[in-house]
Write a protein that binds this DNA or RNA. Structure first.
Length: 565
DNA sequence: AGTCCTCACCGG
DNA sequence: AACTCCGGTGAGGACT
């Protein structure tokens, strides 16, 4: 059933609980029970647990071996509801929400603690702010009401419910960790960077490359210092504006090859080297900290460990346990398919209704079979390409897929004009950055945002409109990327549920924007792959209603993550 | 000694 | 050809 109960840890220990009625109000007396986990465990009939913060309470339940099917995260919902009302930036804690209800001074949100890699505790639960249970219940009932005031109440309810499901997934991902072979990782580092010397300094291979760079310049150059490299090129008579790889690649100088190779290894050493291994991998698992909804578009972020930026070469260390497999599933062309579903463009829906190569299908319709041109045009429409081939091809897009292009154009226009912009489910874009509240410059128009580049006249004509255009590109992308994140949350929720209902040992162990990894016994792998595909279809129907658009996944069953692509 | 900023790279 | 959208990460250095 859909029965909801609210629960909170009691101050002196134990739990406070109460069933809720259809309006989200207490349907009985609040009861106190001595054991939080037991109170939840003993009520499997509860359809959804309503609580202040999943990150605070759910790890404690998991510690006690208690899993819940569904929850409602009040502080996450507060953030989404405030955003929908255009009140981005107001404190989202339950304490703040309660104060607002009673027109009392609103306390600021507590700061998030800094990263502590060695710690096992959650990074996102600063210090629990105590909120009396009855105050929490008032906030929930008010949120229940506020959903009905949104543009699409059904979608908004789906948004808060699915992001709450994401919170459950995140807590479980944090606990499970990604299988990680530290021995393989170390061997990889030795192979790529060279062995480390006892006295410190660069590892062998990197030291060799640094020497090659210095020899090519005829003087000692530290390749990891952009300023030093630019100066060295200047002394060699070559002007470079930066030491970015794409710029260096076009430079004709004997140092370039070694320099690029060094920078590649330097990046691996600093971001995913021995120190990283020490900090983030324990007991054969990499434990990042996932934060659902950490970006304004609804994409997740991780705090620490760089879990969403694991270099391809390092993925060789991600290896399933003996007898187990990694089922790696990647949503195919997620964003164009989502654009088809939200814009209802007939041509694009038609194309997205097939599970084959979407860009090929687009190219057959509008680009005489030129797949590359089609891909650039589709992505250009989504990203707001302003120059180059994308612009030329955009005209063809506009002819063949007018409603799709109109949809993102309208989002861009709304952004430029400072209107609210929302994803399909109702996640709302924050106002333009720039009016910095800390300095009380509320009256500043949005176009006074970021500082102009050095040397650029601060009030040059055209400066404002340039920033407005940047804002338009942002909101144009926001509706697509954000609606895709909406869909992906529903995928995660459906997948989590079906893996559990099937009674499998399979575990979600990784999530990255459009990709999931499930770790499972080899004999479950086929069923897991099917569950992922089914979750994608179900999420499409739930999020967007009946639509011909399909949401296929490329699924690989592997022992090593690096073999998935 | 701590904080903030820039750079350049990783991923989607 | 150029670096469009969304982020995290560390190092180094400038600054307080």
């Amino acid at each position: 059933m859909n029965d909801r109960w609210a629960v909170a840890a009691a101050e002196g220990g134990g739990a406070l609980l109460v069933p809720l009625d259809r309006d989200g109000r207490p349907a009985a007396e609040v009861r106190h029970e001595p054991d939080l986990a037991e109170a939840v465990r003993s009520r499997p009939e509860v359809g959804r647990w309503v609580w202040r913060s999943t990150a605070e309470i759910y790890p404690r339940l998991l510690d006690a071996g208690v899993r819940v099917d569904r929850c409602y995260d009040i502080e996450d919902a507060e953030l989404l509801l405030l955003g929908h009302a255009g009140r981005w930036g107001e404190p989202r804690s339950a304490a703040a929400a309660h104060a607002r209800l009673h027109h009392r001074p609103v306390p600021p949100d507590p700061p998030v603690r800094s990263v502590d890699p060695g710690s096992q505790s959650s990074l996102f639960e600063p210090q629990p702010v105590h909120v009396p249970f009855d105050a929490l219940l008032e906030v929930y009932a008010d949120q229940h009401r506020r959903h009905n005031e949104t543009e699409h109440p059904g979608r908004m309810r789906l948004l808060t419910a699915s992001e709450s499901a994401g919170m459950l997934v995140a807590a479980e991902l944090n606990r499970a960790g990604l299988p990680w072979r530290a021995d393989v990782h170390r061997a990889l580092l030795d192979e790529l960077l060279g062995e480390r010397y006892a006295g410190g300094g660069d590892p062998r291979r990197m030291a060799e490359l640094a020497d090659e760079v210095s020899q090519a310049f005829g003087r000692r150059v530290r390749p990891e210092l952009p300023a030093d490299v630019i100066k060295a090129f200047g002394q060699a008579g070559i002007k470079v504006k930066s030491t970015r790889r794409w710029e260096l690649e076009s430079v004709d100088h004997p140092a370039v090859e070694s320099l690029i190779a060094y920078k590649k290894l330097y990046r691996i050493m600093t971001a995913h080297g021995w120190g990283w291994l020490q900090d983030w991998v324990r007991d054969g698992r990499f434990h990042p900290e996932y934060l659902p909804g950490g970006t304004v578009t609804g994409r997740w972020v991780t705090n620490g460990g760089g879990a969403l930026q694991i270099p391809k070469v390092i993925r060789r260390a991600v290896i399933a346990d003996p007898g187990w497999r990694l089922v790696v599933a990647d949503a195919d062309q997620m964003e164009p398919r989502v654009l088809a579903a939200i814009s209802r463009d007939p041509g694009l829906m038609d194309v997205a209704g097939q599970s084959g190569d979407l860009y090929k299908a687009v190219s057959d319709r509008a680009f005489s079979g030129d797949r590359e041109a089609a891909k650039i045009a589709v992505l250009g429409a989504i990203y707001g390409q302003t120059s180059g081939d994308g612009l030329k091809n955009l005209a063809a897009m506009r002819r063949r897929f007018p409603r799709a292009v109109d949809y993102v154009d309208e989002a861009a226009r709304a952004g430029e004009e400072g209107r609210l912009v929302r994803t399909w489910l109702g996640r709302t874009c924050p106002p333009a950055v720039g009016a910095d509240e800390d300095f009380g410059e509320a009256g500043l128009p949005q176009e006074d945002g970021p500082e102009p580049a050095a040397g650029e006249p601060e009030f040059a004509p055209g400066y404002a409109s340039r920033n407005n255009r940047a804002r338009g590109r942002f909101t144009r992308n926001f509706v697509v990327q954000g609606s895709a994140a909406d869909w992906m949350l529903l995928v995660l929720a459906a997948l989590r549920r079906s893996l559990h209902q099937a009674g499998m040992k399979a575990q979600l162990v990784f999530f990255q924007h459009d990709e999931v990894i499930v770790h499972c016994p080899a004999e479950e792998a086929a069923a897991v792959a099917e569950a992922i595909r089914a979750a994608g279809d179900l999420a499409g129907r739930i999020a967007f209603g009946e639509t011909p658009a399909r949401f296929p996944f490329t699924v690989a069953e592997v022992e090593c993550y690096a073999d998935a692509k």
